[in-house]
Write a protein that binds this DNA or RNA. Structure first.
Lengths: 107, 107
DNA sequence: AAGAAGAGCAACCGAATTGTTGCCTTTTTA
DNA sequence: TAAAAAGGCAACAATTCGGTTGCTCTTCTT
């Protein structure tokens, strides 16, 4: 899974809400996770599949129900990607600052 | 702009490539940014608008050209959001660990 | 054994996204 | 001043998304 797919999966308010709920509980059943989102269970299930495909979430069937739990690894990859972007940005900025300080005064 | 919109904007390999390029340079012209992406300038321009709407990028017209530069603030918000999710996850995990340690041994 | 709970699957629909082509305008520059 | 460079804008097509309805299947529970 490319990191863009992880961002894409996070790029929807309903899926973000689901991830947020899961970050605060160990695991939940699909039906419970689908409540209070303003969409049907089947609609919510679609979203869950997107999250599962991006490996942000694991689905574990157990008898009649399916447990949904967060997989923090993809989350960490996404955060790491952004952190690296910011690092590049800072590196460039520092280099610029140094080069300006090295310049002779302009007047 | 909701944070979901920022993630959504990052959720595309072409836009991610653009952001990556911009993190390493101060600013670039639209035409330059559009090269080597496998799409037309107009296609690339669409992507840039998505990034601009999510405030990941600023567009600054100057005479004939338009300079594109990264705006690190949205990037930071996105990273902060993920960091908070991970924090929640850890808090929950720690609480669980403590409650297990507090339990009397099961045999 | 019957009903309820949890969930899967497929078809369908409207809206949004992604990318294209074609053409126009403005600003440089040779 | 004429050509080239940079870019804007609109229309169009294909595809994907987000959500729904309707039905079926399996597994608990009483």
């Amino acid at each position: 899974m490319a990191v863009a797919d992880v961002f894409r999966a996070l790029g929807d308010p309903i899926r973000l809400e689901m991830v947020q709920r899961l970050s605060r509980s160990r695991r939940q059943k699909i039906a419970a996770l689908s409540n209070g989102l303003g969409i049907t269970r089947q609609g919510a299930r679609r979203h869950l599949q997107v999250l599962a495909d991006a490996e942000l979430v694991r689905l574990e069937p157990s008898g009649r129900d399916v447990w949904v739990e967060l997989d923090p690894i993809s989350l960490d990859r996404a955060r790491g990607f952004i952190a690296e972007l910011e690092r590049q940005w800072d590196v460039r900025l520092e280099a610029l600052k140094r080069s300006i300080e090295g310049e002779p005064p302009s007047e």
